[in-house]
Simulated scan of single mutants.
Amino acid sequence: MTTQHQSVQAVGDTTLPAGEPSQDSLPGGTAVEGRSPARTAWRRIRRDKMTMIALLITLLFIVVALLAPTLTALTGWGPITPDSKAINPDTGNQPYGSLGGISLKHLLGVEPGTGYDIFARIVYGLRTSLFVGFASAVLSTVVGVVAGLAAGYFGGWIDSALSRVMDVMLAFPQLLFIIALTPVIQNALQTNSHGGTDENLRLLVLVLNIAVFAWAYTARLVRGQVLSLREREFVDAARIMSAGRRHILFRQLLPNLWAPILISFALAVPQNISTEAALSYLGVGVIPPAPDWGALLSDASEFFLQDPMYLFIPGVLLLILVLALNLLGDGVRDALDPRANRS
């Protein structure tokens, strides 16, 4: 009896004859199909109910922020349009009715003292929080990736210098220095006709200050990954083929770093939103009457005993937004690196 030797190739968890296409059928008729890392990560995210809920909540907040002009046009109240008929001058301009003046006319009530519609101020303040959170996260991620790539790949004095800078930035008490620097920079750059700083400039300074103190976290993470990847065979092969440093950095190394970069970005956004809210609460962020959740909480703290809903509504919404973003970041991390979270 003669046996016929047949070479085989591995496809998933099964072996199929060599020469067959990469997509075939198992004996039971099940199709075998390869998945990209992105599709695999998305599949894990879809299976995680908590992450999907966090994703839907985050998308809802983003949609509300984008549709802020439309939503406030439907209600008829802008973020700085007072309603003098909704506050009672006999009680120190407290809102009429219970629960802070919540009614069909004012869905979330009105601000004590001013009569501003809280719903309008919240949806416009949400735009501010999301813009600062995402813009500062993008900027800090870009700077951190470039610095981490350079430190990890070139090594030597470049690595030493950048690593010392990272150590210094990580050692700074971030919030205290931002509080100290933000008003100084804002006052030095530009003032408007009223003697204050232009609101767009204030937001730009906030984004820059937060990003300056946040990039080192991403840089340290990317540097550690590059130190491991630069000794891999595909990098050696690129060097042998006379590939330039730019090609190796951005065509060979960077595509293999998208998972830690995405994780770092996803976790930076909620932290930056919390920082922005804290700065506005302390009076060095967005200044009233410009709408911002941190400024709302700061003003509401003065009226807590008379109108607790004024503090409760923006406080709970800020908690939900930051919690959803944190859970989404954790879910993305677990989907991209499932070995890191489960024992």
Rank of each mutant, 00 (worst) to 15 (best):
S140G: 06
S129L: 06
V138F: 14
A120S: 15
W157D: 03
T191Q: 15
V165P: 00
L201K: 05
V145P: 01
L181F: 14
F177E: 04
S136M: 06
M166W: 02
H194G: 14
F119E: 00
L206T: 09
A150R: 08
V143F: 11
V168N: 00
V212L: 15
L139S: 02
L201P: 01
S160R: 13
T197S: 15
A137C: 08
P183Q: 10
A180P: 00
G148C: 10
V145L: 11
Q190E: 13
F154M: 13
A180R: 01
R121A: 08
G144E: 06
I122S: 03
N192R: 04
G152M: 08
R127N: 09
L126D: 09
F134L: 13
F119W: 09
E199P: 01
M169Y: 10
V184M: 15
L181P: 00
Q190S: 12
D167Y: 07
A135G: 03
Q186N: 15
D159N: 15
Q186T: 12
L181Y: 11
V123S: 03
G156M: 12
L204I: 15
I118H: 01
L203R: 11
I178H: 03
R121P: 08
L181K: 00
L175E: 08
A188H: 08
A147W: 04
S140W: 00
L126E: 11
F154C: 03
V212K: 07
I158K: 07
L130N: 10
T141Q: 07
R202Q: 14
V143G: 03
A147H: 01
L149V: 12
T191E: 11
V138S: 07
V146R: 02
L149Q: 07
L208G: 05
L149R: 06
V142S: 05
G155D: 10
A171M: 09
